[in-house]
Amino acid sequence: MTRLRFVTRFCAALAAFWLPVIACSASGDGNGNTTRNGEGGQSATGAGAGSSSSSGGDDFGGDIGLTSSGPGGGPPADAGHQTTCDDEGNCTCINIASIGHEGVWGPCSSDSTTALQNWLNTQSTAQVDNYNREKPTLTPEFLAKYDVILLQWMVTKGAQNDDGQPWQFTPDEVKALEDWVNGGGGLIALSGYQCNGQGCMIHDVTATNQLLSFADIQFNADGVLDPARTGCPNCNCWGGPVPLGGSLPGSVGTWNQDTPIGKDIRSVGAYIARSIKSTTATVDCTDGTNNFAVHKEVGKGHVVAYGDEWVTYSGQWLGTAACLNPQMYMDPNSPCYERSASQVFQISQFWYNAIKYAASSVECFTIEDPAIIN
């Protein structure tokens, strides 16, 4: 298990959250290291393959700035969550578990997710445990350590073009997760990690659907938001994905501004996503036929499902990738002028919304970030 340290400074008085919020004193059990795997993404030069791993050690080049408003300028306190700080001033109040491999495709088909991890690691008073190589056992004791659980690519291999087999959870584990959510836990599920060829086997929905069975939310085994099918003349500007929402060329669907997940999001990039079915969840993003993001209150807890993993890639956060020429964003004659991923997508807003909603039972954090609308 690789633990990611998040140093975000949030205000106690505001119930606004930015990242997965989890139990204050989590010391995760189980095994896991941070590896990221995804579908064959299309970059500015076309589809390809690549892989990466991350432990959250690289610098994040973003401009997210968080300030503490606790007593004496220190971290805020929250009922039921003890804030602790080390000698360097890194404070922890909540804990998150990321379960499953992370994606490895993204822009240039060889991207990582270090920007997301560093956004969390350096600007949050949360702490994340990654379980990405070996499946943890979901017991009440394990789950009690966390406020938010992020479900990712839960397969045995998690390599490019090779999922391996889906992880299998017992009925007792599913029931433990259900009880945890009903008691106030926050669950965020992603999908769409791999597979867009004819006849390929889609494995990333199997374990996730098993764990979501109690919530009446399921991912379909499909491949929507494929730029080869939808047509996207300038998708190379932001590394290949279809703009989900907004008015960019080739954009698809709309984000519902009246929901906690869709609010203040115009567009994010998505590539080979899974559509979502539910008879009771609120739809946050849809094209009228396919639902791409939904949320639901379950007991005292909250569940968020989003059909793609491109919101985790560094190239989408930073707007940079090895195959993308930064000059095209500065040339007024270029169709990509001022259209890098970081300029046209609201990735940080998506995560802020999702985590704020999922972690609504915890009120010890808020975030100050000019890119985020509270």
Results as ranks from 00 to 15, higher is better:
Arg5Thr: 11
Thr8Gly: 10
Thr8His: 08
Ala16Phe: 13
Ser27Ala: 13
Gly30Arg: 00
Gly32Met: 02
Thr34His: 04
Thr35Gly: 00
Gly38Ala: 09
Gly38Leu: 03
Glu39Thr: 13
Glu39Leu: 11
Gly41Trp: 01
Gln42Ser: 13
Thr45Glu: 04
Thr45Asp: 03
Thr45Ala: 05
Gly46Gln: 01
Ala47Lys: 01
Ser51His: 14
Gly57Cys: 07
Asp59Thr: 14
Asp63Ile: 11
Gly65Glu: 15
Leu66Trp: 07
Leu66Asp: 12
Thr67Arg: 14
Ser69Thr: 05
Gly70Pro: 00
Gly72Gln: 01
Ala77His: 01
Cys85Ser: 09
Asn90Asp: 08
Thr92Ser: 04
Ile96Asn: 15
Ser98Met: 12
His101Met: 01
His101Pro: 00
Gly103Pro: 05
Trp105Gln: 04
Trp105Thr: 09
Ser109Tyr: 02
Thr114Ile: 07
Gln117Glu: 13
Leu120Glu: 04
Ser124Arg: 04
Ala126Lys: 03
Gln127Met: 07
Asn130His: 08
Tyr131Leu: 06
Tyr131Ala: 01
Asn132Trp: 00
Thr137His: 02
Gln152Lys: 11
Gln152Pro: 04
Val155Phe: 00
Lys157Val: 02
Gly164Arg: 04
Gln165Ile: 01
Pro166Ile: 03
Thr170Pro: 14
Glu178Leu: 13
Asp179Tyr: 05
Gly184Gln: 05
Gly185Met: 10
Leu187Asn: 09
Ile188Trp: 11
Gln198Phe: 06
His203Ala: 07
Asp204Gly: 07
Thr206Glu: 13
Ala207Asn: 10
Thr208Ser: 14
Thr208Ile: 15
Asn209Met: 15
Leu211Gln: 08
Ser213Asn: 13
Gly231Val: 13
Gly239Tyr: 03
Val242Asn: 04
Pro243Ala: 11
Pro243Thr: 12
Leu244Asp: 03
Pro249Thr: 06
Pro249Val: 12
Gly250Val: 10
Ser251Leu: 07
Val252Gln: 15
Thr254Cys: 06
Trp255Asp: 09
Trp255Arg: 07
Asp258Asn: 15
Gly262Met: 07
Ile265Leu: 11
Ser267Phe: 08
Gly269Lys: 00
Gly269Phe: 01
Ala270Asn: 02
Ala273Lys: 04
Arg274Asn: 13
Val283Asp: 09
Asp287Gln: 14
Gly288Ala: 02
Val294Cys: 06
His302Asn: 14
Val303Tyr: 11
Val303Glu: 09
Val304Ser: 10
Ala305Thr: 09
Trp310Asp: 05
Thr312Gln: 02
Thr312Trp: 04
Tyr313Gln: 06
Gln316Ile: 07
Leu318Thr: 14
Thr320Ala: 08
Thr320Phe: 06
Ala322Phe: 15
Cys323Trp: 02
Cys323Phe: 04
Pro326Met: 13
Asp331Leu: 12
Pro332Lys: 00
Ala341Asp: 00
Gln343Ser: 12
Ile347Val: 15
Ile347Cys: 03
Ala354Asn: 06
Ala358Phe: 10
Ala358Thr: 09
Ala359Asp: 09
Val362Thr: 04
Phe365Met: 11
Asn374Trp: 12
